[in-house]
Simulated assay, not measured.
Amino acid sequence: MTVITTRTTPTRTGVPARPARPFVSELRLSAFASYRRAAIPLGPFTLLTGASGSGKTTALRAHEALARLASGDPLEEVFPDPGAWVPERTGADAQGRRGFRLGCTVEGPAGPVGLDLAVQAEPTLRIVGERLVDGGETLLTTALRDPRRSAVQAAWHTAGAVPVTRAPFPDDRLGTALLPLRVAGTTEGQLRVLAAAEQVVVALRSAFACDPQPQRMRGAVPVGEGRLRPACDNLADVLRRTHTQCAQRHARLVATADAGCAGPVTGLTVEHLAGGAVRARAGRGAGHSTPLCRLGDGELRYLAFALVLLTGPHVLVVDPAAEVPSAMQALTVLADGLDRSLDARQTRELLALAASICGDGHIRVLGTVTEATAALARGTAGVTVVDLAP
């Protein structure tokens, strides 16, 4: 069993009881890899820390998996190696079945809504149980009735002439994400189901798993749509876009780069090369500039994370719920190794920037850090530090 201790440095303002923007407030890993009966609380800016093997990266993978399922990705793409997530020493039943369980709580206008999944990993990958709960009342359940069929039996709250509606759902998709296509919304009960499902889907879909890869960020890249990929390998193309379209945010990015990079940074521009490619350059003052390929690994990772925080979903490869206004959504950045390759100054600057950005509610961060960085973070207002013990 994983023991979790939380330390929070509070902000000046509390979280409203019914926030307008849905967000994941708790990640549950009931039986997932090294976790059993674990509940991880998530604030606007949450850092997971602990010894090697304590499950920091695993927790982020669980959050990312839920986000992908909410976006409609099939189960086999989300869990290409499902056996890796079955808890160790879990024996198979008489039918040779083994699996894992995970879930979350989402706060929002509908109140706290819980989503829990039971996934069969062997012998066939499938969702064998799903439950959506609002205020202690179950709004959706699914269960595997016939192992020979690639479907589960779903039942959802109606509160009309028929109290519960039943229908088959595919066993490789998140049923909660399918509800808007199946529920008419003609009764009060159906409207409640739709509100809860939408809240969960919106919160989960608005996630961006970011892991900057410095070795892939140094070269020239083709001009594209200017949306940052998870590895940040097209950083130069995004800087081209922010330089021309987001002048105010770009100026703040330059100031942040200057605070965390060796030597002065007076500008971040791009050089147009033959064949339609661009290469990023850092201004050094007095008409001088150097290619970003000369920056260290820590400087490039610091710059990439700062770009994500300062520009938000408009320049990221994310697919938030298009039918919901952006002002009603909060982007969640999943950052494994937030402090990797960073020195102490860069770490302090990035922690302060993230805490400031997360304070307005539009962006949330869930990251993993070393214990040394966690010690720094405990003195930063607005940061929740979660200690994971193996």
Rank of each mutant, 00 (worst) to 15 (best):
R21V: 04
D73S: 11
R37P: 00
A70V: 08
L60Q: 08
T13P: 00
V15R: 15
V15Q: 12
E64M: 01
G91K: 13
T105M: 05
T58S: 08
V119Y: 03
A20Q: 14
A33E: 12
L27D: 05
L66F: 07
D73R: 11
A59V: 00
R101A: 15
T46F: 06
S25Q: 04
A118W: 14
R21A: 11
T90R: 15
F32A: 03
E26R: 15
A62D: 05
A70I: 06
Y35E: 04
P44H: 09
T46C: 02
P109F: 02
P74S: 05
P82S: 10
P74N: 01
E76Q: 13
S54C: 08
D81Q: 15
A39V: 15
R37N: 10
R21K: 11
S52Q: 14
V113F: 14
L69M: 11
E88Y: 09
V24E: 01
G96E: 06
R21P: 03
P74Y: 02
F79C: 01
L47Y: 02
P109G: 03
P74C: 03
S54E: 05
S52H: 15
A62V: 03
L115K: 12
G91I: 09
T90S: 15
F23D: 04
G103R: 11
F100S: 13
E76N: 10
L60M: 08
G14F: 03
L117T: 13
A51F: 01
T90M: 13
A65C: 05
L48P: 05
D116K: 10
A67L: 07
L75V: 06
A17Q: 13
Q95G: 14
A67C: 14
L75F: 07
E76L: 06
S25M: 05
L48G: 08
W85L: 13
S30A: 15
G55T: 02
T46M: 10
W85D: 09
T58H: 02
R37C: 01
Y35H: 11
P22A: 04
A17P: 00
P44Q: 07
G72E: 03
E26G: 00
L47M: 03
E77W: 04
P109V: 01
F45W: 06
S71E: 15
T46Q: 08
R21Q: 06
A62N: 07
G99W: 09
